[in-house]
Simulated scan of single mutants.
Amino acid sequence: MGGDIKGSYDLHMHSTASDGMNTPKELVRIAAERGLRGIALTDHDTVAGLREAAEEAALVGLEFVPGIEISTRAGEKDIHMLGYFVNPADEIFLERLAGLRGTRDQRNDLILERLRQLGVEITLDEVKERGGRPLKPGESVGRPHMADVLVRKGYAVDLRDAFDKYLAEGAAAYVSPPRITPAEAADWIRAAGGVPVVAHPGLYGDDGLVREVIGTAKVAGVEVRHPDHDAAGEERYREMAREYQLITTAGSDYHGVRQGVVFHGELGEYVAGEGVVNALLRMTSR
């Protein structure tokens, strides 16, 4: 891990509340051990891990940003919207997220059916078992959990192979049911007291669509530093953020270690400074 991360914030990571391998408490401890000043926990379509992470952060003296990553659909692509400083006790927000997890469950069923049609026999119970960590209320399962089962049962060599063959957008078993739009997700985040930021724009392969999302969703920021952005992409999105006067965020998108491989980046490898967090915080009072 290069560079001095002391005093920095990793603003994108996932716990066992969604598709990460570490509990919220474990993520906080790792961040503290690595000298970070703070983190944001941004699980997919759930805030179930935020309380545990916040309590542990208070114990170890780590600053904590309550976050989320909401799955949306625009331009025939899955677009992810990060939300920072959301209120995890907001009842309307919780109801809306429960609906999103219902859509995620529908997608999971459709993917498993498509896999069965391809002669790949894995069950929802195997997916929900999550390597010995059964699903808890408010948590969600996703494609990485399916990939684990595919590897374990010999249908794929490793996580990347499982996604390339079956689970990635355009692969044999990929399915995406109707979802909310990025603008709706941004509205939900703001209604819950939070600040919306476009996640990893380089993954969408369509900068025109990214610009459209920025405009329609009226986001506050763009995730510029991310493991899946090369140097040219990072500079491109930094310039786009300057053009639209947006906050530039950074995060590892850490999901933990699967089959010996870190997915996406190592916790603390992609970080933002205190000024970024303060800028996001100021947006909550507007």
Rank of each mutant, 00 (worst) to 15 (best):
V175M: 09
V261R: 14
G7W: 03
H226E: 00
L59R: 15
G49E: 00
Y204S: 04
T42L: 06
A192I: 05
F93P: 01
L11K: 05
G38C: 08
E235A: 03
A272I: 04
A168R: 10
W188E: 01
L59Q: 15
M21G: 10
P134F: 00
A231K: 00
R242P: 01
K165G: 04
Y155R: 05
G202C: 02
Y174F: 11
N108G: 14
D109F: 03
E243Q: 13
S8P: 09
G275P: 01
H44S: 13
A199P: 01
V197L: 05
A58Y: 04
R116W: 06
R133D: 11
Y204K: 06
A40E: 10
K25C: 11
E56W: 05
Y270K: 08
K128C: 14
K128D: 14
Y204H: 04
V213E: 07
T42H: 04
G170F: 04
L97S: 02
A186I: 07
A54K: 09
N22F: 15
L150P: 06
Y204C: 03
G256N: 12
I189S: 08
L115G: 05
F85Q: 09
E234T: 03
E56P: 09
E69A: 04
F64H: 03
G102A: 13
A171V: 03
A89I: 04
V28K: 13
K153S: 15
I92L: 13
G205Q: 03
G49Y: 04
G205D: 02
V175T: 02
R286S: 11
T249C: 10
D161A: 06
Q245P: 01
D105H: 06
A191D: 09
E52M: 05
R51A: 07
Y254S: 10
M13D: 07
P144K: 10
G208D: 12
H80I: 02
V276W: 04
L82M: 10
S71I: 04
M13A: 13
V222H: 01
A54T: 07
V197C: 11
I122F: 12
L59N: 14
T123W: 14
E235R: 08
K77A: 05
L82Y: 14
Y9C: 15
V257E: 13
R34T: 11
A231E: 02
D4P: 02
E212Y: 07
N87R: 07
E269D: 15
H229P: 00
L118D: 03
E52W: 06
L94W: 02
I68E: 07
L209A: 01
G75F: 03
R238E: 01
R238I: 00
K25W: 06
D207Y: 02
L62M: 14
D19V: 12
N108T: 11
T181G: 10
L50E: 06
L97P: 02
G194P: 13
D187E: 15
E223P: 08
I70V: 14
D230E: 00
D109E: 14
V47T: 15
L246T: 12
T123I: 08
L246N: 13
G275W: 06
H12Q: 15
A183G: 12
E56Q: 13
G67K: 06
S71Y: 06
A98V: 07
L100Q: 15
D253L: 09
T181R: 11
R225N: 01
E56N: 10
R73F: 08
I70K: 02
P196M: 09
E113M: 04
I68A: 06
G273R: 03
H80N: 10
T103R: 08
K25M: 06
